[in-house]
Design a protein around this nucleic acid. Structure first.
Lengths: 138, 138
DNA sequence: TTGCTCCTCACGTCACGTGAGGTGGC
DNA sequence: TTGCTCCTCACGTCACGTGAGGTGGC
């Protein structure tokens, strides 16, 4: 699929995709002749949606997303290294540890976010209650 | 309290406060001589924290926050109009309707956000499960 | 061949960050 | 009087938006 279909499928803009590639958050589309069209797969959609979700829901900057290992280059590289026949059990375990640490950090941020949402919800409920009370007083 | 204490109390920066005043999201501090210090109250802290929370948790732009009626000038003006003795019951009801509509919009955004967090959590749980499985296979 | 989509600059914008240089209050 | 905090420009930055002008594939 080409870039505009890719952007629509992932729920973002063409410009954002080119920008993410420029700053290294998305890997450059493999061996593309200068000026040639970028081509993407369904897997790319899944991965980009994931990155966008972390950005929007956890409020992470692009730098933080890169540190998080959300950078697709790094993730894909680790994943394929894991599956290479030459990779020993010790190295495989280290890779799993790294993935697990990333998931744990994301979960910690998510839990904080959820608590903040709970607080906001409590306040909205409180406001609704006060409005209803004023209304009853009229 | 002065601006740096205000910024600390509200959980933001001095620059952000001055910027919000500049773009009209915070009301200019009343009758301040050119170059004089800005002075804030505890109530200002409460209101600014609220604005920051909507910005961070719901991902609203400053324009959207203004439209939301989160702009402190508009909110405070409506609230004091409500309590003025000269305000009739019909007008009071209209003000309550407006506040209620704002709360309803915020709740709708909050619910969407919570659903998205649930989706993200499900995916994190799934990833943890897959990592545990790979680990067991080693 | 003709649209349509893509490409690369490159400048604009939003929401601030970060000094530069100067003034005000305990 | 001396620090410390505040003030106002004003330029920098991050994460894109938005054309300008040109090329590529069905």
């Amino acid at each position: 699929m080409r870039i505009s279909a890719f952007a629509r499928a992932a729920g973002t803009t063409v410009r954002t995709i080119r920008y993410y590639e420029e700053v290294g958050l998305l890997p450059p589309v493999g061996d593309r002749a200068a000026g040639a069209h970028r081509v993407y797969t369904e897997d790319d959609v899944t991965r980009l949606r994931e990155v966008l979700r972390l950005r929007d829901l956890l409020g992470l900057s692009l730098d933080e997303l890169r540190e998080m290992g959300a950078a697709e280059g790094a993730r894909v590289a680790l994943r394929s290294e894991f599956w290479e026949p030459g990779t020993g059990a010790r190295r495989r375990k280290a890779i799993l540890d790294e993935f697990e640490a990333i998931v744990a950090r994301q979960r910690a941020l998510l839990d904080r976010r959820r608590n903040q949402l709970d607080e906001l919800e409590a306040e909205l409920a409180d406001r609704e209650r006060r409005i209803a009370q004023r209304r009853a007083e009229l």
